[in-house]
Design a protein around this nucleic acid. Structure first.
Lengths: 135, 135
DNA sequence: CTATTTGCAAAGTATTTGCCACCAT
DNA sequence: ATGGTGGCAAATACTTTGCAAATAG
C-alpha cells in the first residue's frame, strides 16, 4: 500500500510536463484541453488520475478556487514542506511564499481556543505585475 | 437595481433560522435535510437561492471545503467587515477570528511581489475542545 | 391584483468509477 | 505472460435554471 510508484508512461509525462511549464495553477480541465490541443491526446480521467497521484507524491499542490474548481500546480521537491502561494487571478502565474509568521499565528490562535490538530488554508490571489499593468 | 429586498416568506425565514442556530458552517444539502426533518418543507433550489441571497446581503459567509462542497455560516452584521474562521472539521462549530497580523502580512507580501488588488483566503480547520476530547 | 417566490424536474459542471483493451517490463 | 495503465462511457454529487403554480403585500 506504500509508495505506489507509477510506471513511466507517455501520458504521465505529458500531464506532469504540461503542469510544469504552465508555471501556475491550472484546473484538470485546463490541462486536458492543453494536451488535447498539443496533439498529446490523453483521456480526461487519465489526467485526473495522474494529477491525483502527483498530489499524493507531494510533487503537486492543490487549491480550490473560490468557484470550487480544483487547480493544480507543479511544486517540484516533495520534501519542500509546507508553503503558500500568491496567485495571479488573471494568468495563473504563481509565486511560492514562506509563511513562518502565519504558521506561528495559526497555532497561536488554535491553542488559544483549545482546538487540536489544526490545519490551515492560506492563499493570496491578486494581479501579477504584468497583468496589473495590462489592466 | 439596488438592494433587491426579498419578501418575507416562511421559507426564507426557515433557511435563515436553520443556518443561524446551526452555529457553524453547513452545506446547502445539510440545511435542506434539517428543514425537511423538522417538517419545514422547503425545496432544495429554494434553499440554494436563499443562501445565495444571504451571501449577497453579506449576512452569510461561504467556505468551500477541501471536498469541494460549499458551506455557509450565519455571521450576522453585514458591516462586520473582513474576518476569518476557526472551524471544527468534525462538528462544524465555528469561532470567528480577527487577523490583523495576517492582513498586514498579506499586503506586505503582495507589495513585495508587485501584485495588485490582492485578496486572501485564510481559514483554520481543526477539532474543537469537545470533539477533541471525544476523539 | 400583480409581481415575487416556490418547487419540481431537467440541465449543467466537475470529478470518479467500472470495465476491458493495451503496453512496458 | 501479466499486472499496472489508459480511455471511454456511465455514474455521482453538487448546484443552477426553466417554467407553471402558489403567495405576499
Amino acid at each position: 500500500m506504500a509508495a505506489t510508484r507509477q510506471r513511466a508512461t507517455r501520458q504521465g509525462g505529458a500531464v506532469r510536463d504540461a503542469l510544469h511549464n504552465a508555471g501556475g495553477f491550472r484546473s484538470a480541465q485546463d490541462v486536458y484541453a492543453v494536451l488535447r490541443t498539443n496533439g498529446d491526446a490523453v483521456g480526461l480521467s487519465t489526467v485526473y488520475r495522474h494529477l491525483q497521484s502527483l498530489v499524493d507524491d507531494g510533487v503537486v499542490d492543490v487549491i480550490h478556487t473560490p468557484e470550487g474548481e480544483a487547480t493544480y500546480r507543479y511544486c517540484g521537491d516533495p520534501g519542500a514542506g509546507h508553503h503558500h502561494h500568491l496567485v495571479c487571478r488573471r494568468c495563473g502565474h504563481t509565486v511560492e511564499i514562506e509563511g513562518r509568521a502565519v504558521e506561528r499565528w495559526a497555532s497561536e490562535i488554535a491553542r488559544e481556543h483549545g482546538f487540536a490538530e489544526v490545519d490551515h488554508t492560506v492563499e493570496l490571489f491578486g494581479l501579477c505585475p504584468v497583468c496589473a499593468r495590462a489592466a
